[in-house]
Amino acid sequence: MIPTKLHAAFRRRLPLLASLLLAAGCHGTRVEESEHHTPAHKPADFPAAVDRLLALHVEILNGRPRANDSLDVFTEAHDVVRWLPELAADSDLGEEPWNIVYATAQRLEAILTEVRSPHVDDRSNAYLNYETELGQHQRALIEIKQKFPAASPLSSDQSL
């Protein structure tokens, strides 16, 4: 898979590299404006992200495998955790609770990175080893989420 990707990327670049070296023009093509893509699994705001994280936690506990072509549950959880500080910053949340979100997200990311590392055979078991700590972090996030209607009367920008 990877060599094919590499090969395709190289082939795509080859004409340009050659034209750079030969200083020859190649102005026939029109280059389309690239879109700024937001991943489909990115939650709209911080409360949605916390809800999604809890749902993913339950999914991992249940252990039901996803379809092959869909995103791995641990990868999705890792992504959502990475987005937590940004989503929380996109609200009226004060600095003190935001710092808690930031610290929690960093710790959760470390746990998920560990769980997703190649040397781990059984990811679900590795994840469950952190269950007590995960529970503490989830409670902290839920507590902050509950402040949201008061902290952010307009909610975040995605819900406009």
């Binding site: 670049r13 340009l16 590299l17 190649c26 690239s34």
Partner: peptide, 23 residues
């Protein structure tokens, strides 16, 4: 600018592209 059409380099430096630094 004569060699590279407008916007040609917009995807020239993607993080997951192993050729990006060389290119």
């Amino acid at each position: 600018s004569l060699i590279l059409p407008a916007g040609y380099l917009q995807t020239a430096a993607e993080h997951d592209d192993p050729w990006a630094p060389l290119f």
